[in-house]
């Protein structure tokens, strides 16, 4: 099942790419960024839910072609979190952060304070900006340290989130032009530390290209 795809190119000969990612067992729930006077304790009635790694995964198909028309990406601020903790954005695309919560936020990118406009985003308000270089930005509010999102700027238009069920992740990219692409997977903070897979998209239109990727570990590059 494909969740979100923003293939924004207008190539004449293109076909969809669907992929399946075999994931390892979900990792242990990370230590809370903050803790109270006591350590958290598991409830006695039911095991703790496993970590859902899907929202933290991105799949990217890259080749030497730069995105011709990157388009616009909307990232919603839903309260004390973004609607997605990790979002992929083609280079040059317009990023629109929309505040649908009831609290004004002032966001900033830790890696480059100039990336995100410094003005606060009021409830129902939005801020738009563009990023010209591929990079990973951590967008947060200093008044709400728990509010963090990863903005992954990539040098391609073919980036997709992943829906994970039973340790199997699925994604779909529409209208991928013919060619050979490198498959890269981003998890939580960085790209997975694994050899990149390749996929070749044929010239025939409307023919799905299937990609099967096996991820042994969710360890990321340092």
């Amino acid at each position: 099942m494909v969740v979100t795809t923003w293939a924004l190119t207008g190539t004449s000969v293109a076909s969809p790419v669907v992929g399946k990612i075999e994931l390892p067992p979900p990792p242990d729930r990370p230590v809370a960024t903050t803790k109270g006077f006591l350590d958290r304790v598991e409830n006695p009635n039911k095991p703790v839910r496993p970590v859902d790694v899907g929202p933290y995964l991105l799949v990217v198909l890259e080749n030497d072609t730069k995105p011709a028309s990157p388009g616009q990406v909307t990232w919603e601020l839903v309260g004390d979190s973004f609607n997605r903790p990790v979002i992929g954005v083609p280079v040059g695309a317009e990023v629109v952060i929309k505040n649908v919560s009831k609290t004004a936020r002032t966001l900033a990118a830790a890696e480059d304070p100039k990336v995100v406009p410094a003005e606060p985003i009021n409830p129902t308000g939005s801020k738009a900006f563009r990023v010209g270089q591929p990079n990973v930005y951590t967008v947060s509010d200093k008044d709400a340290p728990h509010l963090k999102g990863k903005l992954v700027v990539v040098n391609t238009s073919y980036v997709s989130n992943v829906e994970v069920t039973n340790n199997v992740g699925r994604f779909e990219l529409a209208d991928v032009p013919e060619g050979t692409y490198k498959v890269r997977i981003f998890y939580r903070d960085n790209w997975l530390d694994r050899p990149d897979d390749t996929v070749t998209v044929p010239a025939k239109a409307k023919v799905k290209t299937e990609v099967n990727v096996k991820v042994i570990s969710l360890a990321t590059k340092k």
């Binding site: 109270g36 006077f37 304790v41 409830n43 703790v48």
Partner: peptide, 9 residues
């Protein structure tokens, strides 16, 4: 939501 009991400030 994950199933823990805890406190915070």
């Amino acid at each position: 939501l994950a199933g823990y009991l805890r406190d915070d400030l």
